[in-house]
């Protein structure tokens, strides 16, 4: 095993074996933050805090849902991280209700990273620090890399817990493979991810994968590559 904190965190996530409630912990292992929380929301999965390292991290998450504003919303909306290294210094974002609500929580810095999978919005990672602190460019990059792993885990978990209508015939599988090829070309991704995106779409619309595959082949459904989430504004 590596001693590099990021690698340790990354390995921990990769081998988390479906322990959804543990997904937030690896982030505090390598970042200079006090707590982390992960929530699902957006167009795809229901709004829910699924993992938090401490009660305060959980509250920060819940408040944003209750108020409908805050860094996690902006991160997903803009598809890029929100970085507020020093809340006391005044911030660029406009979350009057959220800032008022957390003013007694003793939070110095707050960050949110979007959880995206291709065109799908999965949720966000919220990070907070008691003292003001900045994330280096390298730390931002690493957080995005871990966020991508978390997105996959959440998506797979959501889909495999669901009973989407089965695809058993060899012929329907053939069409799904063809659609997978079209989607991977549309999004510039791997066959595995393209397949997952088709499954996710079928799941979200409560249709069979074959149905969605046929729409893709007949060009009634098309996925568009969205800009990758890059470095945040601070």
């Amino acid at each position: 095993m590596s001693n590099d904190p990021f690698q340790v965190a990354s390995d921990a996530l990769t081998h988390s074996a479906g322990q959804i409630s543990d997904l937030a912990r690896p982030f505090v292992r390598f970042l200079p933050v006090s707590g982390a929380s992960i929530s699902t929301f957006g167009s795809f999965l229901g709004a829910e805090t699924i993992s938090a390292t401490d009660a305060r991290a959980g509250r920060v998450d819940e408040l944003q849902f209750d108020l409908g504003e805050g860094p996690c919303w902006d991160a997903v909306l803009n598809r890029r991280p929100v970085l507020e290294p020093d809340l006391s210094a005044g911030i660029s974002a406009s979350w009057p209700a959220f800032l008022e609500a957390i003013q007694h929580e003793g939070i110095g810095a707050i960050f949110a990273f979007p959880l995206l999978f291709g065109p799908l919005e999965i949720g966000a990672v919220d990070l907070y620090s008691v003292a003001p602190v900045s994330l280096s460019v390298e730390q931002q990059r690493q957080t995005l890399a871990l966020s991508a792993i978390v997105s996959r885990i959440l998506l797979r978990n959501a889909i495999t817990n669901d009973d989407t209508p089965g695809e058993t015939t060899t012929f329907s599988r053939r069409l799904i493979h063809q659609a997978t090829g079209m989607v991977l070309a549309q999004l510039g991704t791997t066959p595995e991810d393209a397949h997952l995106i088709i499954r996710a779409r079928a799941y979200a619309e409560n249709r069979s994968m074959l149905d969605v595959a046929q729409d893709i082949i007949e060009r009634r459904i098309r996925f568009t590559a969205l800009p990758e989430s890059g470095e945040g504004t601070s």
Partner: peptide, 20 residues
């Protein structure tokens, strides 16, 4: 091998904008 050939057909159908 059919799996990857079916996927490749999809890729080309998309990039060359032709039928499967």
């Amino acid at each position: 091998s059919r799996i990857i050939i079916e996927q490749a057909k999809g890729v080309v159908a998309e990039t060359a904008n032709v039928s499967i």
